[in-house]
Amino acid sequence: MAVLSSGPIENNPVNGSRPTTQVLVKVINTSAASSATVLIQGYFLNGTRNLYVLEQVNVGANQVVTRNYFANLNAFEFVFTTSGTAAEDTQVSMWGRNAAGQLNTSHRLVSEEHLGAE
């Protein structure tokens, strides 16, 4: 089991709009035979840490799962907990998207960049 965190991400408006309004999460299981489970938790940060996303995703062998979450917030954090026989073969990436759906590279995190990643 691994617990990965994006850490707190500031998302204050710039020229009247936020850099990120949605978060795109991709979960990849590279195991040829085993499945994994990923618990996705999203937190709204406004002086306190408030849970607003809670989803458990089952990822089969050689499967890719994509999820989109609301992120039109001043600050947020995502935590990913992997478990199952393919937990070590499971990678998570997180991408911010602006209102037009374009990727926001400053809010991009891949597996090796998450806090807690080995």
Rank of each mutant, 00 (worst) to 15 (best):
W95Q: 07
V59I: 12
E10I: 11
G60F: 02
T81D: 07
L109H: 06
V79S: 02
L24G: 00
E77I: 09
A71H: 08
T21S: 12
N11I: 07
G42Y: 00
N58Q: 13
S34W: 09
N15P: 04
P8K: 15
A99S: 15
F80L: 12
N104D: 15
G16K: 04
Q102R: 10
S5E: 09
N74C: 08
V27T: 12
A71Q: 04
L39A: 05
L24F: 11
L45S: 11
R49T: 14
A100V: 04
S34H: 13
K26Y: 04
I9Y: 04
A32G: 14
V57Q: 07
L39F: 06
Q22K: 15
L4E: 04
I28E: 13
S83N: 15
T105C: 07
L4T: 03
Q102H: 08
I40V: 15
G16V: 08
Y43R: 01
Q102T: 05
A99H: 05
F80E: 02
N74Q: 11
N15W: 09
N11A: 11
G16M: 06
Q91K: 11
F78C: 03
Q63S: 04
R108V: 14
V27F: 01
S17F: 05
N11G: 06
N12S: 13
T82K: 02
F70W: 11
L109V: 15
F78T: 02
F78I: 08
G42S: 06
R49W: 12
D89K: 10
V92C: 10
A99N: 09
N104H: 09
D89P: 01
A71T: 05
V59Y: 01
G101P: 08
N98T: 01
T66A: 07
Q56L: 10
L109A: 07
Q22C: 05
E55F: 08
T21E: 12
R108F: 14
V92Q: 00
T85K: 10
A32H: 12
Y52V: 14
T37Q: 06
G7D: 04
T90I: 06
F80Y: 15
S93I: 05
A32Y: 08
V14T: 04
V59E: 00
R67D: 00
F76K: 01
R18I: 11
A36C: 13
V65F: 02
A87P: 00
T105F: 11
S6Q: 00
A61S: 15
N29D: 10
R108T: 15
L73A: 10
G7H: 08
T20Q: 03
S83C: 06
T90N: 07
T105N: 14
K26P: 03
G60C: 05
F76Q: 03
T48F: 09
N72T: 05
T30G: 00
T81I: 13
S106N: 15
M94S: 11
T30M: 05
F76H: 06
S35A: 13
F78R: 01
M94A: 12
Q63W: 01
T90M: 12
F70R: 11
N62C: 03
A61K: 07
T105Q: 13
T90R: 07
N15C: 08
G47T: 12
G16R: 02
N74G: 11
Q63D: 10
V38G: 01
